[in-house]
Simulated assay, not measured.
Amino acid sequence: MINHTKFKRRQGGFTMLELVFVIVIIGILGVIGAKQFGIGIFGGAKGEAIYETTKKLSQNTVILAQTAGVPATVAANPLPAAGKTLLDVLVGGSGNLAAAYSNVMDTAGVTPLSSAVQSSGGTFSISGYPFTFGGGAGGPGGGHTFVFTFPDTITSQLVSKYGSGVKTLAASDAADPNVQYTVVDASGNRTVTIFHPL
């Protein structure tokens, strides 16, 4: 007679400790892979918010210009009151408009972007990154430009989603029609220009 109790096999499966160990290893590899391929885990939402806000600033400029019958240029635009800029109007509202255009925001249905764009002492920033706003000339190649200084996490997210689509940044890119960037400076940042056609 064979005693079957001696030959009991241990049931298959993993212990809780083994499963936790595997999950930790996968997590570490995921973070390393994300950094290697330029995927901004934390910068993605920031990059998207920056791009969408610049797009809205450009669109609102065009809407206000069309409503008022003036050019959509940024420099020498007749919409702002004396001593104010177009960004003062787009962010701060109709109190910054010249008297001749005091109702243009209401007529156009444009609301100030004060919740998305911060203003302090004449400097405007989105998600904590200061920028300059220019352009507006019509015709081929015309459009609005937004110039920022970003770390590679933000630059890479913008380029992969709105620019050339690459995951690994080149030394620089001055040819992309949507997002261009310079070489990395001494502080580890790049000058990035976002374009929005008219």
Rank of each mutant, 00 (worst) to 15 (best):
G40R: 08
G92M: 07
V74I: 12
K84V: 02
L57R: 03
G47M: 01
P78L: 11
V91I: 01
V70T: 10
T54F: 06
L64W: 04
G44D: 14
Q36C: 04
A72D: 07
I32N: 03
N77I: 01
A82K: 15
T61C: 07
A68K: 01
A82H: 08
A82W: 09
P71S: 13
Q36S: 11
D88R: 03
T61I: 05
K46W: 01
L90F: 06
V91H: 00
V62E: 14
G33F: 06
L57T: 02
G38C: 05
A81L: 06
K46T: 14
A76W: 00
V89T: 06
I32Q: 08
I63D: 12
G69S: 12
I39V: 07
V62F: 10
T73A: 11
P78S: 13
P71G: 09
T73E: 14
E48Q: 12
A82T: 13
K55F: 07
A65N: 09
A49I: 00
G83K: 04
N60S: 09
L86E: 02
T85G: 06
V70C: 12
A45W: 00
Q66A: 14
K55T: 05
G33D: 05
G47I: 02
Y51W: 11
I39P: 00
F37M: 12
A75K: 10
L90E: 03
A75I: 00
V31N: 06
G43M: 05
T85H: 01
A82P: 09
G69Q: 09
V89K: 00
Q36G: 08
L57K: 04
L86D: 00
G92K: 05
V91N: 02
A45G: 10
F42P: 01
Q59S: 15
I41F: 15
G69A: 12
Q66M: 12
S58E: 10
K46M: 07
E52W: 14
Q59I: 14
A34Q: 02
